[in-house]
């Protein structure tokens, strides 16, 4: 095939055919190389967590993608198309600029302490006095998971990326990761008994722009209850809204085992 081959004939047919073939082969190989190189670069630059998050977000049902300003009723029916990354969002910037403090209304029966920030994937973040932050599962997630059968916390020194995996847990047949609300380094691992799961030293000044707090968080929890109802509406033996809805107290028992994985994934934003 190569022109060096003794019986190669340099007629137009050969040149065109082999030229086209070589060009196609080069395109395929070149594209693969480009993909591999840019993947490697993305990984070394720490973009892996963000890409994973983008992927998860894309695969989530649209009910999970409601804009935070839709939760509060400011923008009815708006869905987020930037994977809850509010920093660069123009709509968010505008609404925040003329936002009045929302009234702290009903939290749907959940405990929503006001000293914390809440991630849409149900992790909370609490700024501590020493400049670190502590992370934990919020009240809805805690009730939803019940008693986790395993809890995989990252070791001290591990790097976390905002929206990347913070830790993993399993309950029954369900396995799910909890997305991190912050970028930084794990400096202490906690436990359910300690009241926090991870202590993290954030990179640079703490950025909470994508997180919810105060009245917005209260509205979020109320709306999440609706979403949960929707997520398990197909499952058998679950109280419907007409029956007064799900009992907040014992959420984990309300979910049939065969639906637990799907429901947890949907509520904790893992596709």
């Amino acid at each position: 095939m190569l022109p060096g081959n003794t019986d190669f004939i340099a007629d137009p047919f050969n040149l065109v055919f082999l030229g086209v073939f070589a060009a196609v082969l080069a395109t395929v190989v070149g594209t693969l190389v480009v993909a591999a190189v840019s993947a490697r670069r993305a990984v070394t630059r720490g973009k892996a967590a963000s890409i994973l998050w983008q992927h998860e977000f894309e695969e989530l049902p649209s009910s999970a993608k409601e804009c935070r300003h839709a939760l509060t009723g400011e923008l009815p029916g708006r869905h987020c198309d930037r994977a809850f990354e509010c920093k660069g969002c123009e709509t968010h910037a505008k609404l925040v600029a003329d936002a009045k403090a929302l009234p702290f209304l009903d939290t749907g029966g959940f405990d929503v302490p006001a000293d914390r920030y809440y991630h849409r994937g149900h992790a909370w973040l609490k700024p501590e006095e020493d400049g670190t932050v502590t992370l934990g599962l919020d009240d809805l997630a805690t009730r939803l998971v019940g008693k986790p059968s395993t809890l995989d916390l990252p070791p001290v020194g591990e790097r976390l990326a905002e929206n990347g995996p913070a830790f993993r847990l399993s309950a029954g047949k369900a396995r799910v990761r909890i997305a991190s609300p912050v970028t930084g380094e794990v400096v202490e691992t906690g436990s359910l008994a300690k009241g926090f799961l991870l202590r993290v030293k954030p990179d640079g000044p703490l950025d909470t722009r994508a997180l919810l707090s105060g009245g917005e968080a209260a509205a979020f929890f109320t709306r999440e209850m609706d979403r949960l109802q929707l997520a398990i509406s197909g499952a058998r033996g679950v109280p419907a809204l007409a029956d007064g809805g799900l009992p907040v107290g014992d959420l984990s028992k309300a979910i049939p085992e065969e639906d637990r994985d799907r429901v947890l994934g949907e509520m904790l934003l893992e596709a």
Binding site: T27, V28, T31, A35, A39, A48, L52, H55
Partner: peptide, 24 residues
């Protein structure tokens, strides 16, 4: 498999270039 670091990133990059493979 997508939990393996990097694998999903490669998938993401490949998917972006899928139009090339579709054309070829």
């Amino acid at each position: 498999l997508k939990e393996i670091p990097g694998l999903l990133v490669l998938e993401h990059k490949l998917h972006k270039l899928m139009v090339v493979f579709a054309g070829i």
